[in-house]
């Protein structure tokens, strides 16, 4: 449709992935870590769709759909764990989880 060099798509994808990765490493709030994971998964999806449109195949979009499924399952389980954590500890700080016992 438009002529974007595939390297530019990959560079944008890598930039978004790095932003999400820095978020996962730097934030200690588990909710923000989940959101940063979403940004990372999204960046990977962008790379897949870009590659799929480069070769004019549907496989890139299929991989994106599978990533979407993974993200849905991950958010469901992650938010359930967060709700449990909020009930028990009244915060969602990930460092508190190092004191798990039993």
């Amino acid at each position: 449709m438009i002529d974007i060099p595939i390297t530019h798509v990959f560079m944008i994808s890598a930039l978004l992935f790095c932003v999400g990765f820095i978020g996962v490493l730097a934030r200690r709030n588990t909710l923000f870590m989940l959101m940063s994971l979403e940004v990372m998964l999204n960046a990977v999806g962008l790379a897949f769709v870009g590659a799929g449109s480069l070769w004019q195949e549907a496989d890139g979009q299929i991989m994106f759909i599978l990533i979407l499924t993974l993200a849905a399952a991950e958010v469901a389980i992650g938010l359930a764990l967060l709700i449990r954590m909020q009930h028990q500890r009244h915060n969602v700080d990930v460092d508190g989880l190092s004191q798990l016992r039993g």
């Binding site: 449709m1 438009i2 974007i4 798509v9 989940l34 959101m35 979403e38 999204n42 999806g45 769709v49 870009g50 799929g52 449109s53 890139g60 979009q61 994106f64 759909i65 979407l68 993200a71 849905a72 958010v75 469901a76 938010l79």
Partner: peptide
């Protein structure tokens, strides 16, 4: 959409921005 994947764009809006973010 601009990369020529309108189906993926629709899924992104409906499932990601529509469902997952509403869950958040």
């Amino acid at each position: 959409y601009l990369l020529g994947a309108p189906f993926a764009a629709g899924l992104e809006v409906i499932v990601y921005a529509g469902a997952i973010l509403v869950l958040f």
